[in-house]
């Protein structure tokens, strides 16, 4: 009797405390995730009730889809370039504002501003800059490479996408690098200098190895965010000109919601996810191995 009561009590406690969160989590992530795997085995058009079972045909189609692979290739290139540049710029900004300069808090706050604003709004802002402002400057100052809008040719539109990504994310990474840089005790730096290190040597050989976990975090964040980028892609180039800048997330979206090939779209989403996971996790593992303790 008593036992039964405690069990009933426990179930009650569980339902009150964990019930709502677990229900939402299951309903929004786990069930759709599993259902999504099932969808890859059907050829659903998004409207009809029928979801004909097609076995692995979607996987065959996804692998044969040249458009998907070229957008995936473009995404890999975009990720590689953006991840390196965002982190280099973010790290240099962090070094700059943690150095002894006046108003460093003010600069810090300023560099972070682009991150507060959503990708859609940022994309439109930069569309205006590329289409109107830079073209105006180019034509009036006679700067050749600015006279035509960057968004009008495939290569320059791709570069524009990277410029905006750096502008948006570098301030965020700067904050994490600042936390890493200031987390290394000043004593260690001082000790290195007494032993004859210059300021730069102390940074290079003492501080950098000790803040490797900041690099792990920043790389992980930038890799996962860049692989899945959608808002900026949509608002800045909308995949143009002539579909030349359609990154993978947009390709998957269009496949499902524009071409109504839900099964193939879902299959490609899963392929994209697997590739991202492999890259992000192996990066984290390699970096973790190289971390050192003070």
């Amino acid at each position: 009797m008593n036992n039964k009561n405690t069990t009933a009590n426990n179930v009650g406690t569980f339902l009150i405390f964990a019930g709502p969160a677990v229900l939402a989590f299951m309903a929004v992530i786990i069930i759709p995730f599993l259902y999504g795997i099932y969808l890859t085995l059907t050829s659903w058009d998004g409207i009809s009730k029928a979801k004909p079972f097609v076995g692995l045909a979607n996987y065959v189609n996804a692998f044969k889809d040249a458009g998907f692979w070229s957008s995936l290739g473009l995404t890999l290139l975009y990720v590689a370039i953006s991840v390196v540049l965002v982190n280099v710029v973010g790290f240099l900004l962090a070094l700059l504002v943690t150095g002894k300069i006046r108003g460093s808090n003010f600069f810090r706050a300023g560099f972070f501003v682009p991150n507060l604003i959503g990708g859609i709004v940022l994309g439109y802002i930069w569309q205006f800059i590329f289409k109107t402002i830079l073209v105006y400057v180019g034509q009036n100052a006679g700067i050749g490479f600015l006279q035509k809008s960057w968004l009008s040719t495939p290569v320059t539109a791709f570069i524009a996408l990277i410029v905006v990504t750096i502008w948006q994310l570098s301030g965020y990474m700067m904050l994490i690098y600042i936390a890493g840089l200031t987390g290394v005790s000043e004593d260690l730096r001082e000790a290195a200098k007494i032993d004859g290190c210059t300021e730069n040597q102390a940074t290079r050989y003492i501080v950098l190895p000790l803040m490797r976990s900041s690099f792990t975090i920043c790389l992980f964040l930038t890799i996962t965010r860049c692989f899945m980028v959608y808002d900026i892609n949509l608002a800045l180039t909308a995949g143009g000109p002539y579909g030349s800048t359609v990154l993978a997330a947009m390709y998957v979206y269009d496949k499902a919601f524009v071409s109504k090939a839900y099964g193939v779209g879902q299959t490609q989403a899963i392929i994209l996810f697997v590739i991202t996971a492999i890259v992000a996790v192996s990066q984290a593992v390699i970096n973790k191995r190289m971390e050192v303790e003070a």
Partner: peptide
């Protein structure tokens, strides 16, 4: 589940 990006559950979510 934290490694699952939104795009992977987007299509099933809308379909459900």
């Amino acid at each position: 589940s934290m490694v699952i990006p939104f795009q992977v559950v987007m299509i099933p979510l809308i379909s459900i």
